[in-house]
Amino acid sequence: MPDFQLSCPLPITAYPHVLMAHGGGGRLMRDLIQQMFATAFGGQHETDSAVIPTQGSRLAFTTDSFVVRPIFFPGGDIGSLAVHGTVNDLAMSGATPHSLSAAFILEEGLDLDTLWRVVQSMAAAARECGVRIITGDTKVVERGKADSLYVTTTGIGFFNHPLIIAPQSIQPGDAILLSGDIARHGMAIMSAREGLAFDSPITSDSAPVHREVLSMLQDRIELHCLRDLTRGGLASALIEISTSACLRFDLDESAIPIREDVRAACEILGLDPLYVANEGRFAAFLPADQTPLALQLLPDARIIGRVVEQREPLVVLRSPIGGSRILDLLSGEQLPRIC
């Protein structure tokens, strides 16, 4: 007869060092931003771009750093990603992207041919997006102090509409639109890193989304809030918006499109696709009666849920078999499960 003792470990309440999880798009990252950056810098940090009032107009302003490994992956590379990421952040405020800066941190020993491929890819992506890269910076660090190269892009954009596209504009009854299938970027990267072979490789969804957003605005769709679904995936983005707006969202799991190969890769690696990164997908909150027009403009989009008349921050997912569960921010990055 074993001697049952009821025991437990000491808790780790705060980490004194930066962990990878602090950049994972989960709760540790949110706390770091709120407790350190927002405390020191002030300002509101609930949208992908800042909006600056200028004389008679408004300016959208945003920045993003890119540290992806491998730097070339199926469906994209660090260069195109750096352009798409910042263009998309501008688009999430409803702005028309105008210009970007690009800053490079290069590791000593980096092959110049590699750098040229990245630069060419950035230039092509910028042309495709209709933006110009007009200023930049270059630094080199010693071999081993960086992983090939890091890119930071900063962007500005202008507004052609008067809407305030932000969590506080969301209304109970709004429909929640998802612009396409999820989890492709994260699984393309993971599959490349882990050497998972499929019949055809999973390609990243990395793409600019500003034209989709601008087409909806042009057709007078009253967008209340937009969010691109990068680190932390669909679930983290919706939880953050729900928290900012203090509103409950009800989602229908079976309405969320996930490609079969992506689902398979998630199963194999023990990851939840709802928390896997995207680079060309966004969620939009809009009046329910405008969804037919939105779906006409965005044929790959789906309505995945709605905002309910309940003033509390809660995201509830209804499973296909009829049960429901609360979605919660992960602590940091998803860690693969043992078995």
Partner: peptide
């Protein structure tokens, strides 16, 4: 818990 099996 993920599928809400206990709830049905």
């Amino acid at each position: 818990l993920r599928y809400g099996i206990d709830q049905i």
